[in-house]
């Protein structure tokens, strides 16, 4: 008589049996376990080791201690602070605007609206466009002489912009482009909004509260966990922008869009400095962890968790 469940309601603890169950469990998960070791943990350790070496990818790595790191932080590598600044600027611009924009659309869509499904599809559509095609489209739209963007500005009497070709305007332009692809965030917000119990709003209606009241006292507090999730994801993704910079601006003009990962890519694959590039990667990892940790810390103050339900 082969006994009951694997996850254990009333499994009798015969030794042979539990051993077999363990083995099968691991066997089934083996692809994921191997993947974790081969493509994540192993590379992480190797990369940490490389970050302390001088290594071109073809010579044998020679240990140089913290040199790669001191070169970055001392400013001897003039691009490190530049890349960090550019990327931070992008994150500061693109994450809040992306969240506010998609939250606003989600709130409006969550009302009793005709054509809701169509709007939802339309808002989401840009996020499935391949990044290379996105870059092409926006290169053309933002062309200073012939692009549609400046044409529209001129039509309403505003001066055009240099967009991605201006040192000052390149990062804001890319943040605008980022706004175009926030459909996924909008859908997550919409799903969160649909989960808020109607009864909460009814309570306010009975008290004669206004719509603004509902928004301030119910919608926003109830949505803080979702805002929190999107904020973390936004930060993580924002720090890893690469393709736009590679395809559209090549880091320019005058390094004004030298995004962190682009800087890393250049170091690794154009200058063959694998050791230094690994150090750059680890610093990015630590920055992202610190930021995420900080957001987590502050989240106790502003994220509302329903009951004790840990989300």
């Amino acid at each position: 008589m082969e006994p009951v469940s694997s996850l254990g309601v009333q499994r009798p603890k015969t030794k042979r049996n539990s051993y077999r169950n363990e083995l099968y469990g691991i066997l089934f998960a083996l692809p994921a376990i191997l993947g974790l070791v081969i493509f994540t943990l192993g590379p992480m350790i190797y990369s940490l080791y490389m970050s302390f070496t001088d290594y071109s990818g073809s010579n044998s790595p020679s240990f140089i201690g913290l040199d790669n790191y001191t070169r970055m932080f001392s400013g001897e590598d003039q691009y490190f602070y530049k890349a960090l600044g550019v990327t931070l600027y992008f994150v500061v611009l693109s994450v809040p605007t992306g969240i506010i924009y998609s939250f606003l659309l989600a709130i409006l869509l969550n009302r009793n609206i005709k054509g809701k499904a169509i709007f939802r599809t339309v808002f989401y559509l840009p996020s499935i466009v391949p990044i290379i095609a996105i870059s092409f489209i926006w290169l053309w739209l933002l062309n200073p002489d012939l692009g549609l963007a400046n044409e529209l500005l001129r039509a309403i009497g505003l001066p055009g912009s240099q967009w991605i070709f201006g040192e000052k305007s390149v990062v804001p332009s890319l943040a605008l482009m980022n706004l175009w692809t926030t459909g996924g965030t909008m859908i997550i917000f919409l799903a969160g909004l649909q989960d808020i119990p109607r009864s909460l709003y009814e309570a306010i209606e009975i008290d004669g509260g206004s719509k603004l009241n509902k928004l301030r006292n119910i919608t926003i507090p109830m949505m803080t966990p979702t805002i929190f999730f999107n904020l973390i994801m936004g930060i993580i993704n924002g720090f890893q922008v690469f393709s736009q910079a590679y395809v559209m601006t090549n880091g320019g003009p005058n390094n004004a869009s030298l995004f962190y990962v682009f800087y890393l890519y250049r170091e690794a694959f154009q200058f063959s400095r694998m050791g230094s590039a690994s150090a750059i990667a680890w610093v990015l990892f630590i920055i992202i962890m610190l930021l995420t940790y900080t957001v987590f810390k502050t989240s106790r103050k502003w994220v509302y968790y329903e009951g004790d339900e840990a989300r």
């Binding site: 992480m44 190797y46 720090f239 890893q240 990962v261 590039a277 690994s278 990667a281």
Partner: peptide, 11 residues
């Protein structure tokens, strides 16, 4: 949460 940049080079 691990940036792909970390594993890209060793891989």
């Amino acid at each position: 949460m691990l940036p792909y940049a970390v594993t890209l080079i060793p891989t």
